[in-house]
């Protein structure tokens, strides 16, 4: 095995990204779709941090990863509020059955 370098981190993040896409397109439950989204955001973050280390750009990449984490927190809070509202209206949260904006 060759020495661990930039490519290894990029491959791990690509696999994580593809798994996230798979979760988003196949899951029915809206909360599971959100988990797929978290995987995608984490994959992007690994890329930011890997290039920040191997690219000699200073700490800009790590600052971007920090911003992505903050955005993920805001997104999770809003999405959970919407999911709770959906559950109140339709009594389930399956994204393939909900095709109306209100009852």
């Amino acid at each position: 095995m060759i020495e661990v370098g930039l490519n290894h981190f990029l491959v791990v993040s690509s696999i994580l990204f593809s798994l996230g896409i798979y979760g988003v397109v196949t899951r029915k439950n809206a909360v599971m779709v959100l988990m797929g989204l978290e995987l995608i955001l984490n994959a992007a973050n690994i890329n930011f941090v890997a290039f920040a280390k191997y690219g000699n750009f200073g700490l800009g990449g790590q600052a971007m990863a920090l911003f992505v984490i903050i955005l993920a927190a805001a997104e999770a809070a809003i999405a959970l509020a919407i999911v709770l509202n959906l559950y109140k209206t339709f009594t389930n949260v399956n994204v393939d059955e909900i095709d109306k904006l209100k009852e």
Binding site: L6, N7, L10, V11, S14, S18, K53, Y54, G55, G58
Partner: peptide
């Protein structure tokens, strides 16, 4: 994506 990540000759110069 994986083949692209592996084939690209990333310029790697760690600070």
């Amino acid at each position: 994506i994986v083949s692209m990540m592996l084939r690209t000759n990333w310029k790697s110069e760690p600070g």
